[in-house]
Nucleic acid binder design. Structure first.
Lengths: 339, 339
DNA sequence: TTGTAGGCGTTATCAA
DNA sequence: TTGATAACGCCTACAA
C-alpha cells in the first residue's frame, strides 16, 4: 500500500523501468501491446510519478508563478482567476504571491519563484518608481502595468480612455474631469493620455481638469469630493475615473454632496469589474478583456504563442459598456428648481 | 557561471558535501568556524539548493495548496491573501486553485495537489450536496464551509448571526426577514440557525421569514426584491442577509423599489468585506476575523498549532460593525405621508 | 523495440 | 564533529 514506484510497475508488467518511463512520456518506440500492458499496471497500482524526481531530471516544473500587488482589487482577482484557469488548461499549476505594492517584497517574491524554478512568471509590477527587478533566465511577462525592459501584455489603456471620453464629449459634455491613477503608474499615465487626447480636440470650449489618486474606492471618493466641491456652474458635468473602484467612490462622493447621477453628473469608470454592473446606478465603464489578456500571458510564457517583443507589448482593445451612470448633461428637469 | 551545486561548495570550502548540507539545514553539529567558511563560499558562489532534489529526499515540499470556489467573492479573495501571507511567513509557498463550486473540478484539483505532494491543503469546499472528497494521507483543513470528517476552522457563523439579529430586535424590529445562503451550505445553515434562535425569543409578536439564495450580489438583489415586494404594513422592516454581497444586492433592490434605507428598512450583512464600508449607505455587518482564521488554518497545517479535531472545529468570534444601513424601525417622518 | 546503468542534487546513515 | 557513500525516483544514452 506504500507508494509504488516506477520499479514496481516495471516488475509487475514484466518489463524494464526504462520501458515504463517511455510509455509515461509517450515515447513512440514502444509496442502497442507493451504500452497497453504497462498502462494497465499503472492503473492497477495507482502509480503516480514523483514530481520532484521528474522535475529534477527534466528541469521543468510545470509551475508558473504569479505575483500581483494585492487581491482586494477585484481587477487583479479576476486576472488571477483567469490565469489559473488558463495554466490548468495547459497542465500547469500556479504559485500565487502578493507584493503588497512594495518593491522590496516584490523582489523577494521573485527570488523565491526563481528558487522554485518555476517555468515562467506573470507579474503585475508594484506601483511607484520601481527601478526594475529581474530574476534572470526564466521567462517573465508583465501584465497590465507595463514596464520597460520586459515583455508585456495589457489592455489598450489609452485607446480605452479615448473611448470613454469620446463618448462623454459626444453626449455634449464639455466640463469633463478626470481622476487619473497614481502618478508614475503606466496604465494611469496611458489612461490620462487618452483623456487628454480627446480634450485636445475640444480645446475651444473645454479645459482639461484632472487629479491623481490611487486606484481604490476611498481615493476615488476623496478625489471625487475634491473635484465636485465647487459651484454648480463650474462643476464638471462628467467624470472619467481611471478605475471602477475610483468611479464607485465618486458615486459615493456625489451622493454625499447631493449631486444626482446621471442627471447632474455622468460618471464613467475603467476595468469592467463584476461589481460595476451591480451597484446603483449601474456603472458605465470601459471593460478590459481580462480573459484574453490572461490567456495571452499564459500562452506566451508556455511558448504556445510568441512572446511579445520587449518594447512593443501586446495590446488588447477595450469595449465601452454604456449603462446607467452616464447621460447627456443638464438632462434633468430638477435643474430648474435647484438653481 | 553555470549553476553551482553543493559539490562545488564543498570543494571550494575544503569540506565534504555532507557538511555543507548540514550547515544548509542548520544542523547543530558543525563548528562555528566551518559553518562560517561554508556560508561564505555559498555567498560567493551564489549557490541555491535545488528544491526538487531537496524535496525528493526530504519528502517535504514547503508548498501548501489552497482551493477555493472562486475569487470573485471578495471574502475568499481576502482569505487567500491572508493565507498566502501566513504561509510565506512560515517559509512556504502557495499553490492556488479554483473549483468553481464544481465538485468534479474540485476533486481534480485535490488530486493534482496530492500529486504535487504539497505539505498541506486548505480548502473552502464547493457548495452543494458534496458527498466528500479526500486525498488521503496529507493534512487537509477546511475553512469557512465546514464539512463532516475533516478538521476545520471558521467563524462562529451562528453566533455571528445572533449578534446581528439580536441587534435588530433590540432596535425594536419585529418583522425581521432573512436571506439565507444556499440550502445545503454549512455556513448558510448556521447563520440561518442563528437567525432562528433569536426569532424564537420573539415568538409572541414575530414570525420567521426567510428565503434561500446564493451568496452573490445578484441573488441577493433578487431575494431582496422578492421579500420586499409586498404592502408596506406587511413588509419586513429589517433584513438580515447571509453575506455582504447579498446585503448590497438588497440595498439595490430597496432602492429600485423606492424604499429608504435605513428609514424604512434596516439591512445587515455578513462577512465584513472591504466594500461593505465603502458603499452608500455604509453597511452594518457582522465581520469575520479573516486574518485570524487564515493564520489558524496555516498554523494548524504546519504543525505550529494543534489541528482542530474532526467534529469540533475551531470557531472564531465575529464582531458586529454598526454603520449606516440600520436604525430603529419607523424612524422616518416620511412614513406619515406615504400611507 | 527493450534492457541496463549512470547520473540528476540532496539528505541521511554510518564510520572514523 | 566530519567524511564517505548509499539511497531518493526518474530519465536517457548506450547496448543488446
Amino acid at each position: 500500500m506504500s507508494k509504488s514506484g516506477i520499479k514496481d510497475v516495471a516488475e509487475r508488467a514484466g518489463v524494464a523501468v526504462g520501458t515504463v518511463s517511455r510509455v509515461l512520456n509517450g515515447h513512440p518506440s514502444v509496442t502497442a501491446e507493451v504500452r497497453a500492458r504497462v498502462k494497465a499496471v499503472i492503473q492497477e497500482l495507482g502509480y503516480r510519478p514523483d514530481p520532484f524526481a521528474r522535475s529534477m531530471r527534466s528541469k521543468i516544473s510545470r509551475l508558473i508563478g504569479i505575483v500581483i500587488p494585492n487581491l482586494t482589487n477585484p481587477f487583479f482577482a479576476e486576472l488571477v482567476q483567469y490565469a489559473e484557469r488558463a495554466a490548468t488548461d495547459h497542465g500547469h499549476n500556479v504559485i500565487f504571491m502578493t507584493s503588497f505594492d512594495d518593491s522590496a517584497k516584490e523582489a523577494d517574491r521573485l527570488a523565491q519563484l526563481a528558487g522554485r524554478k518555476v517555468d515562467g512568471i506573470i507579474i503585475v509590477p508594484s506601483d511607484g518608481p520601481h527601478p526594475i527587478k529581474a530574476p534572470t533566465g526564466l521567462p517573465l511577462i508583465t501584465v497590465d502595468r507595463l514596464i520597460a525592459d520586459h515583455p508585456g501584455v495589457a489592455a489598450d489603456h489609452r485607446g480605452g480612455a479615448r473611448l470613454a471620453v469620446d463618448y462623454l464629449a459626444g453626449l455634449g459634455h464639455r466640463r469633463i474631469a478626470c481622476i487619473a491613477g497614481p502618478a508614475g503608474s503606466r496604465p494611469a499615465e496611458d489612461r490620462l493620455q487618452g483623456y487628454l487626447d480627446v480634450m485636445k480636440t475640444l480645446r475651444n470650449d473645454s479645459e482639461p481638469l484632472f487629479v491623481h489618486a490611487a486606484f481604490d474606492f476611498e481615493s476615488g471618493r476623496a478625489a471625487g469630493t475634491h473635484l465636485l466641491a465647487r459651484p454648480r456652474d463650474e462643476r464638471p458635468t462628467a467624470l472619467f475615473a481611471s478605475s471602477d473602484q475610483q468611479a464607485i467612490g465618486c458615486l459615493r462622493a456625489a451622493r454625499d454632496l447631493g449631486i444626482q447621477v446621471p442627471a447632474e453628473l455622468s460618471v464613467v469608470g475603467f476595468d469592467g469589474i463584476p461589481l460595476s454592473n451591480l451597484i446603483a446606478p449601474r456603472l458605465t465603464t470601459v471593460v478590459q478583456p481580462m480573459r484574453e489578456i490572461a490567456d495571452a500571458a499564459i500562452s506566451s510564457l508556455l511558448g504556445r504563442r510568441t512572446m511579445p517583443p520587449v518594447g512593443t507589448p501586446d495590446l488588447f482593445q477595450c469595449e465601452l459598456a454604456v449603462r446607467e451612470s452616464s447621460a447627456a448633461p443638464f438632462s434633468e428637469p430638477a435643474a430648474v428648481s435647484s438653481v
